Amino acid sequence: MKDQQQLSAGQMSFLFFTFITGSNILTIPGPLIGFAQNGSWLSVLLSLANGMLLLAGVMFLYRKFPQFNLIEYSRKLVGKWLTLIFAIPFIFMQLHSTSGIVLDVGLFMTTSMMRETPLYVFNLLIFLVVALTVRSGIENFSRMFAMLMMTVILSVMVIVFLASANYHPKYLVPVLPDGFKPVLLGTYFYYGVPISELVLFTMLLPYVRREEHHLLKKGMFLALIVNHLIIIVVTLSTLMTFGPIAGERAYSMFEVARTIDLYEVVQRVESIVGYSLVISNYLKAAISLYILNITITYLFKLKDNQILIFPLALVCFLFSMIQISLGQARWVNAVTIIEPLWKAVSYILPLLILTLTAILRKNRE
């Protein structure tokens, strides 16, 4: 089964930026500061260095197998049975992540803005819209996502600028009050949760037009760098606003927006953050569900690449409700502590094995 849809290198790079940035600019700073304290920006820089190495591995395999996704060239490199072993945690982690993206929106809405509305209402409606978006095809939603993501970035930058009246630069020091260990913990969290997910784009890179293959590498690395720079900006904004208690803010930019009160004219701008969170999570969830769908489609060599979209959306919805039924505290612990390790095993380890295998075969030839 081969999908005939194609994207330009620029569209793929921006889709990649949308996926790795998504809601992270709104939800990541709080937990990141909770781990790394004032050294959280150092954690982001360390994550960038590791992320560029991981992306280099992705681009190496893409350069060697430009017409194949991870499932296809895994069969060529290690055989179908080892590919199946790799695919089991790979797919399960995608189910967990896709359901978690939408669950974050539901938890935000039910705890911050619409407390009387049941969680399942938000989750079900979002998954319905996400499934319809995925069904429209990657060519269609990639065009729409560029405009929507730009509105999210613009909204966040406006919040960062307006909140500057409440900044206290003195909160940024000392940078390492408890040594370098918190910085390493912050790197473990940030690299492990959103950045390791860049491996999933091994499933999408073959959609790039053949004549633009040479342009893709620069765009992908630029997207990764810009992502980390934006995270540093919003993290510093949170630190300078809340200081020692910044790590206690789960939805940090929403809390930063609530502090804005300029001459009793500019008020209640946190609704902009609410819009940004819903839109950015929707964008990331759609990309995630699309990748999950084509992973299973190629793994089992299905002829119809749309037949599983709505069933997978339903499974992710049910999975999200099961996860939160165990308690919000357990959910937060799973995302911040356990998930980085799961993703290392599910995403990074298979990529490393395939990269090393490809290098060894190249040397033998």
Rank of each mutant, 00 (worst) to 15 (best):
S155W: 00
S164P: 03
L299E: 02
N166A: 12
S237E: 03
I88Y: 01
F180Y: 13
L84P: 01
A334T: 04
R364P: 02
Y188Q: 12
F310S: 12
V158A: 15
K303D: 13
G247N: 06
Y251F: 14
D178K: 15
I279M: 13
L61C: 09
S288E: 07
I153L: 14
I71S: 01
K343V: 01
I195K: 04
G327D: 07
N140W: 02
E197H: 02
R364Q: 06
I294Q: 11
A246K: 00
L341D: 08
V234F: 06
V208Y: 02
N333D: 10
P340C: 03
L46F: 14
E212F: 02
N50A: 14
V273C: 08
F16S: 01
V58R: 08
R361K: 15
P244A: 15
I25E: 14
I101G: 03
W41D: 09
T241Q: 05
L352S: 14
E339F: 09
L7G: 00
T83D: 01
M150L: 13
D261Y: 08
V256T: 10
R249T: 05
K181F: 15
L125V: 08
L172M: 14
Q94W: 04
Y120S: 15
H96Y: 12
R63C: 04
S155C: 09
F161P: 00
S346T: 13
I33Q: 11
A250N: 09
K301Y: 03
I353Q: 13
V121D: 11
M203K: 03
L70P: 00
T111P: 05
K217P: 00
L148I: 03
R135T: 04
P311F: 00
L54D: 00
Y347L: 14
S271G: 07
L82M: 14
V335S: 05
S97N: 12
M157I: 07
I359A: 08
V160W: 01
S320D: 02
F201V: 01
V160S: 11
N333A: 12
L283N: 02
W331D: 15
S320Q: 08
E139V: 05
V345L: 09
E116Q: 15
Y207N: 08
M1Y: 15
L7V: 02
R361D: 04
G100A: 15
S155I: 04
N38T: 13
A334D: 09
L341G: 11
I272D: 01
Y73R: 11
P182R: 15
L198I: 14
Q328P: 01
